Simulated scan of single mutants.
Amino acid sequence: MAGEIPDLHAQERTGTGKGAARAARRAHMVPGIVFGGDVDPLPIQIPYNVLIKKLKDGRFKSTLFNLKVDGHDDVRVICRDVQRDIVQDLPTHLDLMRLRRTTKINLFIPVEFVGEDDCPALTKGGVLTVVRNEVELIVTAGDIPEKLVVDLSGVENIGDTITISSIDLPAGAKPTIDRDFVIANVSAPSALKSDAEDEEEEADADEVPTVGDEEEGGEE
């Protein structure tokens, strides 16, 4: 399970309906609701600047949060919707869903690469190119991995690729993409690539006859 689930601080909102929501916005708060988990919905509000920052950080709707509201037990939630003003595109309301430990959710899990010093392909001069530094997985809320580990010590050759099938995923987790996609590859250094391309160009030039050769052949 992930070592640190980020906290999301909110306040309980008094009153519901359009009037209470407008009052919250006038106080520079974004109104919201917490639902699910066989518990009554809880009206909340979050400081506008806090929510804007989290939205700009990205992945807000696919991040698991530990919701902290004074007077209530902490609960794990995930955002299910952020409503926005159609003109200014600013958040006006958000919906958070409580999660049971068995709830299936989509989350982006970071990828960590280990064993670089023992990687034969890298010791031969190869360069590690990371295609995905995180992978979206379907996981259970009670068994969220902190990271996915890629062991490079078994990558033998320059040109080899590491795909999702070569990573040991947690029990019950699976990628949202239904194909064996690439996580990283070990490519030749750019200097070697340039030398190889130059050699190919020189070889091609040697094979192409010059205009003078063609004329001499015609005269004979």
Rank of each mutant, 00 (worst) to 15 (best):
I105C: 06
V111Q: 09
Q88P: 00
L55H: 03
R98W: 03
R98L: 08
I52C: 13
R98A: 11
G58M: 00
M97F: 02
I109P: 09
T63F: 06
C79N: 09
I46V: 15
G58L: 00
V114L: 09
C79Y: 04
K104T: 14
V75I: 08
P110L: 03
Q83C: 06
K104I: 13
L55K: 00
I105N: 06
G58F: 01
L107I: 15
D85L: 01
Q83M: 08
I46N: 03
Q88H: 13
L94C: 05
K54G: 01
T63H: 07
D73Q: 11
K56W: 13
L107V: 15
G36K: 02
G71N: 09
N49E: 14
L51H: 05
D118I: 09
N106G: 00
R100P: 11
I44L: 04
T63V: 00
I86D: 04
M97H: 09
P41H: 10
I44A: 04
G36Y: 02
Q45H: 13
K54I: 07
L107Y: 10
V75H: 05
L96G: 03
V77F: 04
K53N: 10
F60V: 07
K56A: 12
C79F: 05
L64N: 03
P47A: 12
G115E: 03
T63Q: 10
H93Q: 07
H93N: 11
R76L: 14
Q88D: 12
V50K: 15
E116M: 14
D70G: 02
N106H: 09
D70P: 00
Q88G: 05
E116H: 11
E112G: 02
Q88W: 02
E112H: 14
D74Q: 14
C79D: 02
I105S: 05
R80Q: 13
P47L: 11
R80K: 15
